[in-house]
Computed example of a mutant assay.
Amino acid sequence: MMYRLLAPLALAALLAAPAFAAPVTVKSCNREVTFEAPPKRAVSNDVNLTEMMLALKLQDRMVGYTGISGWKTIDERLRAGLKALPELSPKYPTKEVLLNADADFYFAGWNYGMKVGGEVTPETLAPFGIKVYELTESCIHIMSKAKPTMDDMFVDLLNLGRIFQVQDRAEALVKTWRAQLATLQAKLPKGQAPLRVFVYDSGTDKPFTSGAYGIPTAMIEAAGGMNIMEDVAKSWTEVSWEPVIERNPQAIVIVNYGEVTAEQKIAFLKDNPAFKNVDAVRNNRFVVLDYVAATPGPRNIEAIEKLAAAFYPGTL
């Protein structure tokens, strides 16, 4: 009789208790990282990685961000989401910056807040209980990987969703973006050679550009073009101007950030006699993408739509 009286009470107590979440393991470059519980004091580095966190509405799990104002300007879309969070370091953080913030999670990448052999790496932070998730695009700096597709960015969002237990948000975003891409690609011209495209980030003596393993290659291909530097086995790297001129891009993507404006970069290309016979320069065919849109993050799909409209005007 006593058992029958207690059983409903015990059941009610169990139902009222918070659900216990099982540990989550995700692949991060060449590591597997296990989270016993969602991070509570996260830090993200760089504007695009920070926007991934904001897209999943994880501000309340963050203690700050790093690596934005030292190179870039925070636009209004990003500023609104960050207003309650401090910038802990204008450029790459030191180990002490993360320890002083009592961080338990660092979302960064190789050359996006970490350097190979540097002070801040997954290995150097592990003894302090700070777990690291690495941006998938950046894994090429420490391991072999396939040329990126937009799935690289989607995987990062889905993994963040699992780490922070907001899978529904992540899956909804990725489903929407996949649908947008499918709609766009159904409208692209069929049966013709893809447009030849060059990515111009910065530099005058030698251009800094995106090679095969940078996300712009995936974005350009999704928009119906081909990166003329797709044979360069790097993500972002410096090249010489000679192959750019020889490969004669039909469109040039200008990455907009830093002290040199997009307009100044375009003027440099148009005013230099060496580029006068390049199709993109002759036809004034430039597409400007902000840094945050040209690196892996939530603005990639919108940027692909902008690229496609510029590559194939009047057809979309």
Rank of each mutant, 00 (worst) to 15 (best):
F105E: 00
G81M: 07
Y112W: 13
E32V: 05
K40G: 11
V63E: 05
F35R: 10
R77H: 10
P18K: 07
A22R: 09
F35N: 04
V24A: 10
W110S: 08
F35C: 06
V26R: 03
T25E: 11
A108I: 08
T34K: 08
E76M: 01
A19Q: 12
L54S: 06
T34V: 05
A13H: 06
W71G: 02
K72F: 13
W110T: 12
A42F: 09
A55R: 04
K40S: 12
D46H: 14
K72Q: 11
R31M: 13
P18G: 09
V24Q: 13
D46R: 15
F35S: 06
K95M: 11
A17N: 05
A16M: 13
D75S: 12
K91N: 10
F107L: 10
C29V: 10
L98N: 07
A37W: 05
N48L: 03
T66K: 01
L54T: 08
P39A: 12
T34R: 02
V24D: 04
Q59N: 13
A101P: 00
W110G: 06
T34F: 02
T73R: 15
P90F: 11
N30P: 00
A19S: 07
G70L: 10
L88K: 04
G67N: 13
P39F: 01
G64W: 01
L15M: 14
S89Q: 04
N100M: 09
R31W: 09
P39W: 00
G113L: 11
Y92R: 11
P18C: 09
V63R: 08
P90D: 02
M62H: 10
M62T: 13
A21T: 15
G67F: 04
D102M: 09
T50Q: 11
E76D: 04
A16K: 12
R77C: 00
L85D: 01
L14M: 15
E87N: 04
S89K: 06
L54D: 03
G67T: 14
L82D: 02
E36I: 14
S44I: 04
T50P: 03
N100A: 15
P23N: 11
L14K: 08
M53I: 15
L98C: 09
R77P: 01
A13I: 13
P39T: 08
V43S: 02
M62C: 05
T25D: 06
N30H: 14
V43C: 08
D75G: 13
K72E: 04
S28H: 07
A101R: 11
K40E: 10
L49T: 05
P90C: 09
T94D: 02
